[in-house]
Write a protein that binds this DNA or RNA. Structure first.
Length: 422
RNA sequence: GGAGAUGUCGCAUAGUGGCCUAGUGCGCCCGCCUGCUAAGCGGGUUGAGGUUGAAACCUCUCGCGGGUUCAAAUCCCGCCAUCUCCGCCA
């Protein structure tokens, strides 16, 4: 959530930010009104409560008729206090609900517009020319089945559509990618983590996934727990309700975890193979830093993502996501998209978001400064999403005979070339 | 899953209905004193919100949420966490 003080100090800033996202400005006006109601109800409650307390002190000392009279007065007050307290609570709740529905202020640097209005920042590497090489590229499903790398039919049999088993070299590939990603992250100064994939509502809500993204989240009603769609959730909630000592920022964590996504509303989209699935594993980077450092850290996260894709020798481009496509928490988002030969386009394999203080306010994560505690900034970025990375490696590394050449970075962990099963 | 115990300021502890405006010790910060350090002395030290030009002030905060009461750290109910024992299990 945003800083509520902005509602009083600079509501026009908020209106402009809503416009940039293509969302309603009237929410800002509702918020200003709700804030006024909240504050006046607090004032009336505190006035009666203060009176009640001061009479209470007299009651303790008084006796006889005097005491009886005081008791009569304060008895009546008691009902008023209860009423005022309830009114105050309701006004505060209404305000908070509204405040939480307001997305983070889109950065001025984020391109204006919706999904299609992204800006390409850079393109790296050259997609292979399969026509010139004299063969038709196979798609990842065909390649993967021939290599015995995954099994989507049995995935569907056991768990349903959009599930799969990684098998043989596929399973080994994920483990190799995980090992490589985690050790690189550790070299870069990240603390390796393996977090819980089931979290309480607070963690889910605090990271902004129960807003417009709620339909995409798996929920276990019997236990009131959510399956996380990314380890951003347990990593952000890791320091919830904490005040971090000055000088301990930035704190960088790299987590390996499964990711569960309902993919509601994606029926018929990317149905082939393991491109869009209900579960995959991922190594995710997450950073707590100061508001001053957040933008620079965002660039660093992008730099690490690029270094990773460079190491995997994949052709990719970097996209600056438009304001209308940012999601609730981010002010700016860079996506890295790898070239997928059989689709003839670049597809998202990683994403780096700067959430500034938005998540930290909801999760109450602060740092101690000389001027007192203040909320930290949080950022997250994909290092390696397994299934999509495997797809990109297979399709881009394929050879005419159906074998797949792997990048040098993986050679210590796997053979240089994966051969199809006979 | 069953039984029991515990939860107070960074840590340790005191506090069983009004004198709690939560005491004390340790730690920490600022002074003083002192060849240096330590000790000693004095002051400060949870966080949030409201109000304000600022200060003063006010409200909330004793794991969390309800309730009883004129009044709750204190009594009652529910939940959560931790510890011990039993059961089950990788």
């Amino acid at each position: 959530m945003i800083d509520a003080k902005l509602l009083r100090e600079d509501p026009d800033l908020l209106r402009a930010a809503q416009r940039r996202r293509g969302e309603s400005e009237s929410l800002v006006d509702e918020l200003v009104a709700a804030d006024e109601r909240r504050r006046s109800s607090i004032a009336s409650y505190e006035a009666v409560r203060a009176e009640q307390k001061s009479i209470g002190k007299l009651v303790a000392k008084a006796s006889g008729d005097e005491k009886a009279e005081l008791l009569a007065r304060t008895k009546a007050l008691s009902a008023q206090v209860k009423e005022a307290e309830a009114a105050q609570g309701e006004a505060a709740q209404a305000f908070e609900r509204l405040l939480k529905s307001l997305p983070n202020l889109a950065s001025e640097q984020a391109p204006e517009g919706g999904e299609d209005d992204f800006v390409v920042l850079d393109t790296v590497g050259t997609p292979r020319d399969f026509a010139a090489e004299g063969f038709e590229p196979k798609d990842h499903l065909e390649l993967g089945e021939a290599l015995g790398a995954f099994d989507v039919e049995r995935g569907a049999k056991v768990s349903g559509a959009r599930f799969y088993y990684l098998t043989g070299v596929g399973a080994q590939l994920e483990l190799a990618l995980t090992q490589l990603a985690m050790s690189k992250a550790a070299e870069w100064g990240f603390t390796p983590m393996i977090p819980p994939a089931l979290v309480k509502p607070r963690a889910m809500e605090g990271t902004g996934f129960l807003g417009q993204a709620a339909d995409d989240v798996y929920y276990l009603p019997k236990d009131d727990l959510y399956l996380v769609g990314t380890s951003e959730v347990p990593l952000a909630a890791y320091h919830s309700d904490e005040i971090l000592d000055a000088g301990t920022l930035p704190r960088r964590y790299a987590a390996f975890s499964p990711c569960y996504r309902r993919e509601a509303g994606s029926y018929g989209k990317d149905t082939r193979g393991i491109f869009r699935v209900h579960w995959f594993d991922k190594v995710e980077m997450f950073v707590y830093t100061t508001p001053e450092e957040a933008a620079a850290e965002h660039e660093r996260l992008l730099g690490w993502e690029r270094a990773w894709l460079d190491a995997l020798e994949l052709p990719y481009r970097v996209v600056d996501v438009a304001a209308g496509d940012l999601g609730l928490s981010a002010i700016r988002k860079f996506d890295c998209e790898a070239w997928i030969p059989t689709q003839g386009k670049y597809r998202e394999v990683s994403s780096a978001s700067n959430c500034t203080q938005f998540q930290a306010r909801r999760l109450d994560i602060r740092e101690r400064t000389d001027e007192g505690p203040r909320h930290v900034s949080t950022l997250n970025g994909t290092l390696c999403a397994m299934t999509r990375t495997i797809i990109a490696l297979l399709e881009n590394g394929q050879q005419a005979d159906g074998s797949v050449r792997l990048p040098k970075a993986l050679h210590g962990l796997l053979p240089a070339v994966l051969e199809p099963l006979s």
